[in-house]
């Protein structure tokens, strides 16, 4: 028998999903520090990462409060193991070539944008406030990654080919963003999570239009989708990200002076 989670528990779980996805993608982007293809791209990637890490902290702060204050944002980010992370599988995928980096960013940004747009109207002031702040930033992210889809997709023969491969290889991780489980359905009825059908329709609409303009093939709508990130079943990549990201906090817990 499964017990219906209380609204606070469900919200806390959902906030961790939002925070973890932002944090892990931020961490992934930071791997490109010093290695980006051009200096402007490096600044852009690091700025996007910074926005995402900042947003993650805002969500973690609230999640920690709902939990009762035993753990703070740092503990949530640095002291949980892979199976406790609730991020989307998409964001933990490796950077690959720049087509993969930008296709991953675009799929996430589009989902992030429509998700935040719904959360801006949440009846919870904290959720609405964090979302409104983040939405301004994510609007920029989406604009930029959409442009890159078009530039690479409708670019040279090679960039087109690489983007086709990137879209195809990442497509199977997009399904879980658009399917609501019990936690999200429960919250959606209270206006604390987006309506899954609306989110899927908005996301699909935007992705179709950008891919079409980018002269890229649309993956089949009934493609098989990998699930699991939201419930802590991750791909093999997450452990490596955490090993690097959490090393310092794990080796020197609560260190105040480095």
């Amino acid at each position: 028998m499964t017990q219906q989670p209380s609204q606070d528990q469900a919200l806390q779980e959902y906030l961790l999903r939002l925070a973890d996805s932002a944090l892990i993608l931020g961490q992934r982007l930071c791997e490109l520090c010093g290695k980006a293809p051009a200096v402007e791209e490096e600044m852009a990637l690091m700025n996007v990462a910074l926005d995402l890490v900042g947003q993650a902290r805002n969500w973690y702060d609230y999640a920690a409060e709902l939990e009762g204050g035993q753990r703070d944002a740092d503990a949530l980010a640095y002291r949980r193991d892979a199976h406790e992370f609730r991020n989307l599988l998409l964001v933990e995928q490796p950077n690959g070539d720049y087509a993969v980096t930008m296709a991953r960013q675009f799929f996430y940004d589009a989902w992030h944008y429509f998700t935040l747009q719904a959360l801006v109207n949440a009846p919870d002031e904290r959720v609405a406030g964090i979302a409104a702040k983040a939405l301004k930033e994510v609007t920029y992210h989406l604009r930029r990654s959409s442009e890159w889809m078009k530039r690479l997709g409708d670019g040279t023969e090679e960039s087109h080919q690489r983007m086709e491969v990137a879209v195809e290889s990442l497509w199977r991780f997009t399904g879980e963003m658009l399917t609501a489980d019990a936690v999200e359905q429960h919250l959606a009825t209270a206006g604390l999570a987006p309506d899954a059908e609306q989110l899927a329709a908005d996301w699909q609409g935007l992705v179709n239009s950008v891919l079409t303009e980018a002269t890229l093939s649309l993956p089949p709508a009934d493609a098989w989708m990998q699930q699991g990130g939201k419930t802590g079943r991750h791909t093999e990549h997450l452990g490596f990200i955490l090993a690097e990201m959490q090393f310092l906090q794990r080796a020197y817990p609560d260190a105040k002076i480095w």
Partner: peptide, 13 residues
Amino acid sequence: QVSEFGSTACKAL
């Protein structure tokens, strides 16, 4: 515009 992002998050180049 050279880049949508500049030396800090609040600026473009």
